[in-house]
Design a binder for these strands. Structure first.
Lengths: 209, 209
DNA sequence: TAGAAAATATGAACAATATTCATATTCAAA
DNA sequence: TTTGAATATGAATATTGTTCATATTTTCTA
């Protein structure tokens, strides 16, 4: 099994050096062009021209255009998982893990704005892929929250979705405004972590206790 | 100006009854087919066949296929705004507004799962449209938070993004699992509102005060 | 109400693009 | 070195977004 190659339906993993080289060039070109022009404005012949191959070569390694997409999504998924695991590797408490984990995600979003295109765009391309992605993410997140304790609420699955929402939308904000590392860190310390420990709103003044 | 017609670049609003009927059929067909087959698997001829018009008719009202998409997105945007405004119309406090507003959004997401396809899918179709959508939403949200007070944190823009993230991802969860109104309400009362007023995590035990 | 002008309808024709395939070349193992 | 498997190639095909010349319907005016 070649290194770095992810096995996905619709993908043919090459068996020779020549094949590996060509496939890697096609993947790199796809990623670059998708990021610049978007998935649907990028044609197969664009990708092949950029990669220096014939159109037929593309179809040796990918059954359809959508399959390159799936492959890239699988790559991002793996990269996010790895980065998150690395970022919280030395943390003891859930508090620290959230601090490092959310920060890590936001930084990743800023440096790889294409993640949103790929992952959220998958809704229109292969709905099941999108659902699987977030359900599996939520499940591990929820399990981790339960395991670590420190969470004040019993419905950890809903909490997992809330935390994913917070990460994803702060990533969006950071991407829109081009926040740098220092700004992200300030936001984490001054706003995000206080919100996670103390909440956002004062109690409803009018409600009975 | 015909009622219910939204003015968007790339759209030709019809001037006769016949025209209005045809355009409405084209819009309804587009919405239904996009929801079932996705934007890119739906061809113009599919839409026209379903609507009972010729292909040329489509191009009288819409300059391009993307323009129908923009029109639908504008429709959802308006509908979300209207529903939110209606749902928080009688609320006095920010606490109540968040309770009603988030619940309203989740219910809308469950009953209209196509919103995510359309709004998040716009990232791959017209990035600026996506950015404008969330930036303008965040701006009004942030202004409202500031105006109402009751928010414990000074960076209301980040708070707005966090709240949008919470709504959107809980909507996702509700959509995935097909939650009913009662389940949504329980989640709001037992998990979401406590999280907003008290937070999610216990303080970091290890950090210095 | 007649008739002209504007609005709308139509589908064949065109252009762009995803995908296929028969043929040629290169690679790797014996 | 030989041979079969793997890979490369680009012309050909099928699908689909878009255009356009022509026909029909609606609206306005005299």
């Amino acid at each position: 099994m070649p290194d770095k190659m992810i096995r996905v339906k619709g993908i043919n993993i090459p068996k020779t050096e020549l094949g590996k080289t060509k496939m890697e060039k096609l993947l790199a070109s796809s990623e670059e062009l998708f990021a610049n022009k978007g998935f649907y404005s990028t044609s197969i012949s664009d990708i092949c021209k950029h990669a220096g191959t014939a159109v037929g070569t593309f179809y040796i390694y990918f059954d359809t255009k959508t399959d390159v997409y799936k492959y890239l999504m699988e790559t991002y998924k793996k990269e996010i998982k790895d980065r998150l695991a690395a970022s919280i590797g030395n943390c003891q408490t859930r508090y620290e893990k959230e601090y490092e984990g959310i920060k890590c995600f936001i930084k990743y979003a800023v440096s790889t704005p294409n993640v949103y295109n790929i992952i959220w765009g998958s809704l229109s391309i292969d709905r099941q892929m999108f659902v699987d992605y977030y359900e599996s993410f939520a499940e591990s997140y929820s399990r981790a929250l339960e395991h670590d304790g420190e969470v004040t609420l019993s419905d950890t699955e809903s909490v997992a979705y809330m935390l994913m929402g917070i990460s994803n939308f702060l990533g969006l904000k950071a991407m829109f405004t081009g926040m740098n590392e220092e700004q992200i860190d300030n936001m984490m310390k001054q706003t995000v972590m206080p919100a996670l420990t103390n909440g956002i709103l004062k109690y409803d003044i009018t409600r009975e206790e």
